[in-house]
Amino acid sequence: MSNADVSHQSTPAPASTTTTGETEETVRESWRTYDVTGEPAVAVEDLNVHYGDDHALKDVSMDIPEESVTALIGPSGCGKSTFLRCLNRMNDRIKAARIDGSVEVGGEEIYQDGVDLVELRKRVGMVFQAPNPFPKSIRENVSYGPRKHGDLDTSLLSRLLGRDDAEAEEALVEQCLRDAALYEEVADRLEDNALGLSGGQQQRLCIARALAVDPDVLLMDEPASALDPIATAKIEDLIGELAEDYTVVVVTHNMQQAARISDQTAVFLTGGELVEYGDTDQVFESPESQRVEDYITGKFG
């Protein structure tokens, strides 16, 4: 492992001078051996991302346990969103991005030739920072994925032939909206345009849309940052419930939120380094790295 080289690179953080390279090394060892019960849902090894000359992520390695909530926290520009977007290869959309390293989802390497991006994104769903429902009806928003994948056939042709999946669609839409804690609010207006919903409702609709494809992993990029406190509370409750069935990875810059909702927390600090990763309680109450403690207690960041 070349982690040692990286950890010696000076960062602008004032705390880094107080931490010797040696202790940093031991810290890294401790989170590498972080006890993941069972198979990790996502295993990341030496992930590096460059945007042109900008080194956005440096040698990140972490195992994410399944059916739990993992929070990624850190100051803005620390690379946590970049990291998240590597897990379903949405960074491929950015032409200047160069990605090296290994990410395994469900035991399969996603950065190799011949990977089917469509299939990958079916397994790793994503919810974005700002709600982005399609300008279609609520029903169509939820059933969009399965329809496009051909799992729900409601096309004109199949309706003409009388073999459409209208009932299955009905059931799926209801189930996903219930899972996203939205069904009660929209049950009587499923045909309305989704853009007419409030921000919080739109975001839960986006979660329902992601759930409809039945992913293994659900990535959330600051899902509540554009919402008011009440809507935020609903989303937070929802994330806790989702963790019973899904592996949830959520990016947030709100440390209280991370502490409330997550099982384990990863702290990224300026320069794209993963500085600490462990049980949420432990990270917040007795962090091993001085820099993380400074960040959590508000001394910098």
Binding site: V118, E119, K122, F128, F134, Y144, G145, K148
Partner: peptide
Amino acid sequence: VPEAMKSGALAVGTTNWQTMKSVTVPS
């Protein structure tokens, strides 16, 4: 057409062509 909308479609695993047909061009 906002990139967020295209990303939203791609993130549920539709192909680029499906995204164009059902999101980009209609928008």
